[in-house]
Simulated assay, not measured.
Amino acid sequence: MDNQEQFEQQSLIEHLRELRSCLMISLGAVAVCFIVAYSVVQPLADWFLHPLLKVLAEGKPLIFTSYQAGFFFI
C-alpha cells in the first residue's frame, strides 16, 4: 500500500488529527517568525530613517502625515 492509498483510507478523525498537527506547526512557525521580526524592527527602522533624521533640525521630531505611516517603523 503506497502513501496515497493510505491517505485515502484514513478516517475522518485521523484527517482531523493530521489537520490539527499541521495547524499547530504553522501557528508555531508564525509565532517564531513574528518574534524574530519584532526583535529586528527597531534597528531596521533606525538604519532606514537615519539619513532623514540626520537632516532634520535639532530638536524637531519626525512627524507622519497619514495615519498608517507611523505603523511602518514603530
Rank of each mutant, 00 (worst) to 15 (best):
Q6P: 00
Q4M: 14
V40H: 04
F48I: 11
A31R: 13
V55A: 01
I63K: 08
V36Q: 01
C22I: 05
S66T: 13
Q4T: 12
F71A: 05
C33K: 11
V41M: 12
G28Y: 08
E5G: 05
C22T: 06
D2A: 15
I35C: 13
D46M: 05
A57F: 14
I35M: 13
P61F: 07
S21V: 13
A69C: 03
E58I: 06
F72V: 05
I13Y: 05
H15E: 02
Q68E: 00
L27G: 06
A37M: 07
Y38W: 10
I25L: 11
P61H: 03
L49D: 06
I13F: 08
E58K: 07
G28N: 14
E58G: 00
V36L: 08
A29Y: 04
I74E: 03
R20M: 03
L19E: 09
C33T: 10
E58C: 01
G28K: 14
V40A: 01
P43R: 08
Q42A: 01
C22S: 06
D46K: 11
Q4G: 03
I35A: 14
I13G: 03
A45L: 02
S66I: 03
Q4S: 09
A37D: 11
F71T: 04
L44P: 00
H50M: 08
S66L: 07
G70L: 00
G28L: 09
S21K: 15
E18P: 01
V55C: 01
Q4W: 15
H15D: 01
V41P: 01
A57G: 13
D46C: 01
I25Q: 10
S11A: 04
H15G: 01
T65R: 07
F73Q: 01
C33F: 15
S39F: 06
F34H: 08
I35H: 02
D2H: 12
I63Y: 05
E18V: 12
A31H: 11
R20A: 12
L53C: 09
V41Y: 07
A57M: 13
S26P: 00
P43Q: 04
